[in-house]
């Protein structure tokens, strides 16, 4: 485990399995956490589980797709923590996947997922980055899925991603967005890299934590817009 003492980290999607695991790992390494999600249902358990003695843990809920809501949440966290060193975008779709019918071709469902995933990633990043620019430093990790590369969208087998047409489009869309953002802000001292979760990622969480550590630690200081695909 890496030493994150004194580092302030915002985790968007803190309620997701991957968000919670990353938050817990950062906290065990000594980081102060600002946790953001669309939902408050796991709030108490989350704060209790991830908070380590002596560290600050702030929790905010946001309204999906609402920039005023994101601004209020991020401003509040920065006020509590003092600054932001890292941003992890870890909103993930395990709950979504369960309720999606792979044969569903509904345009309204697309609108919903685009907002919850792509637009919210954009919003939280856009809201946090000005604080990083002020300090000319910051590291951002986008958690994504491999379905954007493979298109493997259905089934239960090991080689399938288990997603939907919406997830595959959002996933590769996020990769494109991340690449563009990374190239725009790396001259300002901020790195942006990604992790693409493969099937059965919940059984391989140590690899997710390893990848997160890699991007946050600065070991790969010159990596820009790179994605570790965890098949």
């Amino acid at each position: 485990m890496r030493d994150y003492k004194g580092k302030n980290c915002i985790v968007f999607g803190a309620n997701s399995v991957v968000g919670m695991e990353i938050s817990a790992s950062l906290s065990q390494g000594g980081a102060n956490l600002g946790l953001i999600d669309l939902d408050s249902y796991k709030h108490d358990a989350l704060v209790e589980n991830v908070g380590h003695p002596g560290a600050t843990v702030a929790y905010k809920t946001v309204l999906s797709g609402r920039k005023d809501s994101f601004k209020e949440a991020v401003d509040g966290i920065v006020n509590d923590l003092g600054s932001v060193d890292y941003l992890i975008c870890a909103f993930y779709l395990e709950e979504e996947r369960k309720k999606r019918d792979p044969d569903d071709l509904d345009v309204d469902t697309w609108d919903e997922l685009l907002k919850e995933w792509v637009l919210n990633y954009f919003l939280v990043t856009k809201t946090v980055v000005p604080y990083m620019i002020q300090r000319k430093a910051g590291r951002i990790v986008f958690v994504n899925t491999t379905t954007g590369y493979t298109g493997e969208g259905e089934g239960e087998g090991e080689l399938t991603g288990g997603g939907s047409v919406y997830e595959c489009a959002c996933s590769s869309g996020i990769t494109g967005m991340m690449t563009s953002i990374a190239r725009d802000i790396i001259p300002k001292g901020i790195s942006v890299n990604g992790i693409a979760l493969g099937p059965n990622y919940e059984d391989n969480m140590e690899r997710v934590i390893w990848a997160t550590d890699l991007w946050l630690s600065g070991i790969c200081e010159y990596a820009c817009a790179q994605i570790l695909r965890l098949y």
Binding site: P102, V118, F122, T147, G148, Y149, T150, G151, E152, G153, E154, G163, S164, V165, E167, C168, A169, C170, S171, S172, G173, I174, T175, G176, M177, T179, S180, I181, R183, D184
Partner: peptide
Amino acid sequence: SSGIPSPYLAGKAGFIGLTKYLSQK
């Protein structure tokens, strides 16, 4: 692609996941 606005590239890259998913499905 570099130097391209993020929503444009998000859209264009999004086609890659769509293409692959639809072909299999």
